[in-house]
Design a protein around this nucleic acid. Sequence first.
DNA 1: TCCATATGTCTACATATATAGAAATATTTG
DNA 2: CAAATATTTCTATATATGTAGACATATGGA
Lengths: 124, 124
Amino acid sequence: MDIQKAIIAFDALSQETRLRVFRLLVEHGPEGMPAGTVSEKLGVPHNTLSFHLSHMSNAELVLSRREGRSIIYSANFDFFTGLIRYMVEDCCRADFASIRKDKKSGASIIELMNCCPPKKEKKS
Amino acid sequence: MDIQKAIIAFDALSQETRLRVFRLLVEHGPEGMPAGTVSEKLGVPHNTLSFHLSHMSNAELVLSRREGRSIIYSANFDFFTGLIRYMVEDCCRADFASIRKDKKSGASIIELMNCCPPKKEKKS
DNA sequence: TCCATATGTCTACATATATAGAAATATTTG
DNA sequence: CAAATATTTCTATATATGTAGACATATGGA
């Protein structure tokens, strides 16, 4: 993940139709769903949706595969978790967030501090 | 954090100048730095920068305060960590990510799985 | 091969965004 | 109160984006 990829990813997520598509696809996991079903579920015309899906595909947020006449789209979980890692690593300071790998599972463990402790007092 | 705030935040992060501003401000922590210094450091004209800063301010990504003639901008760490939490909670499924609070520190602990195990084999 | 289905591409247009010059506003200093 | 400094607002303009109708392409089945 570099700054250009991140910008393109944020751009893909910064539009209501696309963010709704992404969340719908996330719900359906790696199996995903056909473009037409997304179009129906969200009430977006197929050509408009196609525009957004290729936008998201270009950003690597979604993956696609053909199955017969349908093209199945699914959320790209690896890329998305990579984006989250980027936000933590490159956009957060060490004193607010830390990230480490769990050797056994390979999972990333992220710790986000509450940098401003629970709204009791404000310093100056 | 709701979907509308998230869209506005992603939009604020989806532009090179703004993402560079944000990263610069993050480096400088809660103290932040004057608008003019950001303008100089990034080589962006002051009025153009002002446009982007108010964009980011509107998105709640940055905070500002006046100090004498200067207006000091700083990254809004609370909001940003909230955005990361949103991405994990609302955009990731439980089988790819989990998030919990550490009772003592109040920190959020996020666990991101490698959903596709380290590129050995591909299932169909 | 012809037709129905599923999706993508082309096109046009309305709207939104980024940019920067010029002018305006707020603050400190003399 | 005038001048200098710091930043924002106004304005114009060029470019980018989102939308959807019309058309094109790809697949599977009769």
